[in-house]
Design a protein around this nucleic acid. Structure first.
Lengths: 208, 208, 208, 208
DNA sequence: GATGAATGAGCCTTCATTCAT
DNA sequence: GATGAATGAAGGCTCATTCAT
């Protein structure tokens, strides 16, 4: 990679990094392109060499950050050597909740724009890893499922339902402690997830 | 009511109506106060006589519209003469989903700003009805619960969980048909609600 | 005086009082007519029954407040039974400075608009006293002068020079302690006044 | 100097020039930023590139114009080859009065905002001259004093007293011919200045 | 006389976007 | 590719003034 090209990448990355910082700190609406380029230390015109406008860089960031979060969760799961499918799901949910509780700004940034469509986009987004392999969360989920020997009426709808439930309730609990704190809500959440998994399971074999 | 006072109310209502129309049509961010007053046929200064800014009128509209929706659902429920608690919950959910599917703009408007805090605020908002009684949805929910003879580990968390689940999944299904259409998702949704109600029920007597 | 008429006077006085308070507190530029009528507890239209605009009420207040200050100084002088003219001038200057140092807002209000023209207008303004006699400071000054047996090249210019000197230097000393505090400046001020009085005195008989 | 940079300076200067014209013509309060940029022939946003608001450009103009006036007076003094300190002071006063009488707008503009603090700021302002030396009026005053061999109780207070006296009386005489015209007042003014200089002189050797 | 809702001209300020360098 | 001065449309908001009641 030539020096010039690397310089190019450096500027683009600076824009990404500062944009994310500002979006999560001041909010997207109140972040101006002037803010971004000033913090990034590049000229205003440079921004337009890489992005169409503020929403272009925002969308790219959301996909990237969401994918990264799930990728990390999956990596951690591999280290945990869990074999039970339910346990794996709970592990991933807990991992993500822990991350989000550590970083409220990230939660706001991701959730405000969280819809299944974007989520799925994020899952399918190539997460370029150090080994340059692409990572797709949705495929990983299906893999876990296959290994578990479990079958569901509609795997996609199970995942959809759980993700929406988790995202939606935890947004409120983490950010506003409404109606209760995340710590208080977690037991109910995991019970709810179990209930959903059982309901959608084709062999109703896990009714406790 | 004097002529002056009725005129005053007329202007305020015109602002409410046009603001809602514009918010749901063009989105809040792209609606300017100039747009609102122009459509409402009042002067700019008049807006500031009644509202602090754009977000003031938005918040008041959200509370009002959300409260109205639940109030209508509850009214319809009373006509339906259902006695089973689960049936009642399903009825309300169906009623609201039907309304929202009929009015995507309302769905967008309400959901984009839907958090339990606001929701509860809306529930507690006095919906002044034609009979001048106040209506509080949350209290109605507790009343239904009491009549049913059922008990839950935490009634508030049940309601919270169901509302978040319904709101979040249906937003995606209705607006984007993602991952499936509302019609396709409904059976899963109702199964999920049953699963949750059973799980939180203190006497696990409804496991089907 | 009829009840209605007294009510009328009451409103006008309320406007005067609150306008002065607001002018001295927030400054004239930042005081709006809305502020005034709101604090005064009268309707907006009422303001326009008595005053042309903000500057009308301001000008009337300046004349009144300035005249009042000199009237009070003169009253105090009468109690002091001083016979020497120089002493009388020093007494009045000290009296006024003391008042202004006690009330910086009054100083700002008066001085910002202090020019000999307005000053003289204030002097000539009828200060309606409790005995309903009119009071004119400039005439009093001439009276003092006549009684003293002193003569000046131009009495009016002496007064003008002294008032401008006092007003201008003390504004700076009182409000900003620039270049020194009023207390530090006073000895120089009184020496300066003596020097001016001697210089303008037709018989240079007071050179110390 | 690059073409771009010279263009930049040109715009800024255009703003300064037109702002000063408008401020002195219509008054600061009635001059809007729209007026300024329109007259200057630049876009509105350009104004905010160089100044924070109307008062920012005003303050910068006051300092600059005041400093310039004193600088010019001092330059003229050097040409006049006067050796006596009193003569030098009278020369400077006359020079400045002549300038101000020629340019009432400048007088209004400077005086309305004249306080010792600002004055001193203006004196200390670097007046970048064609020879690129800095000029400080207050220091020049001290230099003149030192050369004269005279000593005063407090040089700063002498200067303060004289400047306030001159500024304050002449404002009235020049602008309103109140109580007399400047021409009529000048003899009294110079006598007053002499009286003050003598009074503050540590060796009372100049009593005429 | 008194009211105060309504007006709307007009101000300040921001900021995405362009383009000559 | 990179710059950043310049733009000017557009928005938010204020407030003196009016006039029907």
């Amino acid at each position: 990679m030539g020096k010039l090209e690397s310089n190019k990448k450096k500027k683009k990355n600076a824009l990404y990094t500062t944009a994310f910082d500002l979006f999560t700190t001041k909010g997207i609406a109140k972040t101006t392109i002037s803010d971004i380029v000033e913090s990034a230390g590049v000229a205003k015109g440079t921004f337009y060499l890489y992005f169409k406008d503020k929403y272009d860089i925002r969308n790219k960031l959301i996909s990237h950050k969401t994918g990264e979060l799930f990728y990390d969760a999956h990596e951690a799961l591999l280290q945990a050597h869990l074999t039970d499918f339910n346990d794996q799901i709970h592990f991933i949910v807990d991992y993500i909740l822990t991350q989000l509780e550590k970083d409220h700004n990230l939660l706001v940034f991701i959730s405000k724009n969280l819809a299944w469509g974007i989520f799925k986009g994020a899952f399918e987004e190539k997460i370029t890893t150090e080994t340059d392999e692409d990572y797709h969360f949705y495929q990983s989920f299906l893999d876990l499922l296959a290994l578990s020997g479990r079958t569901f009426r509609s795997p996609e709808l199970v995942l959809f339902t759980i993700i929406e439930l988790v995202g939606s309730t935890c947004y409120s609990c983490i950010l506003y402690s409404q109606p209760v704190t995340l710590e208080e809500y977690k037991p109910y959440l995991h019970d709810s997830i179990d209930a959903l998994l059982n309901t959608f399971s084709e062999k109703g074999d896990v009714c406790p």
